[in-house]
Design a binder for these strands. Sequence first.
RNA 1: GGGGUCGUAGCUCAAUCGGUUAGAGCAGCGGACUCAUAAUCCGUCGGUUCCAGGUUCGAGUCCUGGCGGCCCUACCA
Length: 601
Amino acid sequence: MSRPILVTSALPYANGAPHFGHLVGAYLPADIFVRYHRLLGSDVAFVCGTDEHGVANTLGAEREGVPYQEYVDRGHRRWQAAMDRLGIDFDNFSQTSRRDPQYPLAQEFFLRLLKNGRLKRRDIRQLYSPATSRFLADRYVVGTCYVCGCESARGDECPSCGTWLEAAKLVNPRSAEDADDKLELRETWQYELDLAPFATDPAVKPWLDELRGRMKTNVRSFVFDKTIEGEGLVARPITRDLPWGVPLPDHDLDGNPIEDVDGKVLYVWFDAPIGYISSTIEWARATGRDWRRYWIRSADEAPDKGPRLIHFIGKDNITFHCIVFPAMLAWQTLEGAAGEIPEKNKLRGAGDGERWVLPENVPANEFFNLEGKKFNKSTGWVIDIDEFVAKYGVDRTRFYLATAMPETADSDFLWREFKAKTDTLANVFGNFAVRILKFVGKHFDNRVPPAHGFEDEAARVAECIETRTRQVADAIEGYTFRKAIEGFLGLAEDGNLFLDRTAPWKLRKTDEAACGGALHLALQLLPPLSVLAAPFIPETAARLRAMLNLPAREPGPLLPAEPLAAGHELGTPEVLVQKIEADEIAAEVEALNARAESADS
RNA sequence: GGGGUCGUAGCUCAAUCGGUUAGAGCAGCGGACUCAUAAUCCGUCGGUUCCAGGUUCGAGUCCUGGCGGCCCUACCA
């Protein structure tokens, strides 16, 4: 039995608008990886959900005058629709504001960290808004810069002199939302999670060392060179004063009251990654599975034997997924102490002799820009996903984005590249299938001709299939998706070469049986092509199988490839991938520039 | 301010630990072919590896400085 695999994509903030940058960073690569594993028949679960707590969501809801829940529900539907449109096929797409199991689970994480002495209570002074009865985060504060006197400095940075500011020292601080809302400094307290011992913790160190060797280099340098060995790890607050979020529990695991928790919630970053777990639980309940199979391993089991946890994220999320969330998971363990806990606080997570799984890898991508500049809705520098997919289709969208993924460095959406790459798909891949199938349809009664001669070529064809299949599989397992695309396109290239070598259109005039023999071999490339392409362009791959008159493939090993038997009747060939007109691209670029200019004025 | 990262052909990207003459695809140019979506196949052109120094037998790769892009950062998910 293969190891269970849990794949997660970064939880999108409900407040935000989906764009290609999100897609290419965390959703598309995860979806390709998962679809590949489903082909193999791996025990894989793919979960995500919207991240719905936090200040940005409360402010958004208030600005529109709707209840928080209604506001985030709407955001959730927006994200769900975008994911559906792009064929991102989650097993479950949840919401962190669904009370069960997210709230009790997040509270349990908090309580166990507390019991383990990982949390420290700290008194602090924060800017408070009397008008809205709450403490404001720095970015929602404006005031007069204490360095240069600029009157519209933000709480974190002065736009005029560029100084990094301390919000509490601003002169005349007021709310960014409402200039009449004068802020005052008030005493409050928060819990902090002290990360300083993380990297040297004996429960963490071996895992961290292994992770270091496995990680993509862009992630490794960030986590190790910069964060752990550079800045060092510090304490981070995990609670806030807010009316929206997971409330702090009022009793600890031993049944003692926790004082003064009114109005306090878990900080959104704390409950967000727990959303991965509750999304898994939700899915498991709905499908009658055991969620613990994906999250919990036995303490004495080697880490390379238990479940595989893989987080696909953008680079902005690296610290949380490589350090903060693993710390939260590792420090849940209450060895020996679990028995003393009152029944009502009984655990749903790791018990005695068990551990939460720590991520096997965090294949973070970099950022994706549009024609050299950041995607930006307010300046019109965006591409509307709905419109785009409606016009160009989901598979050409996925294919181009996969070829342009920012795997090692930031990259760009470029309209001219969109045409160039998808035309290559049409020419090399689509046309290859069609040129064979039409030929067979015209001259061989649309049935697979019998094998005949070409023994050397038959061996070469078989070798191409094996080599390309391995190339695609290795590349996907190594999170190098652009290389994987070269693999399946390469198989079509091998096929085009084969046809040019054997030239069945010439043989047809001289040796009908040999002509059929050549086509018989060429046809054998098409089933594996439909399989290797499927994770990237699922709809097109399915259409190819329909054109081959093949049923959906049963999950299982990719090799040996499915043969097409002589006499098998084929389906109807039609254009597999459309090409794009040059004028269309010119018009798109013009429209983009026009939008940006009108937003500018 | 501090830190990180990237800069390679007209374009998009490769290049293991520092190791042969820096490789692909696209675009361009020339040719072959006609089954196919003006497609495919062959050949060819194309480089001061951002700049200036340094270490080394040897540097795209390591070091120092500079320029440019991007990211992170002291209670932003």
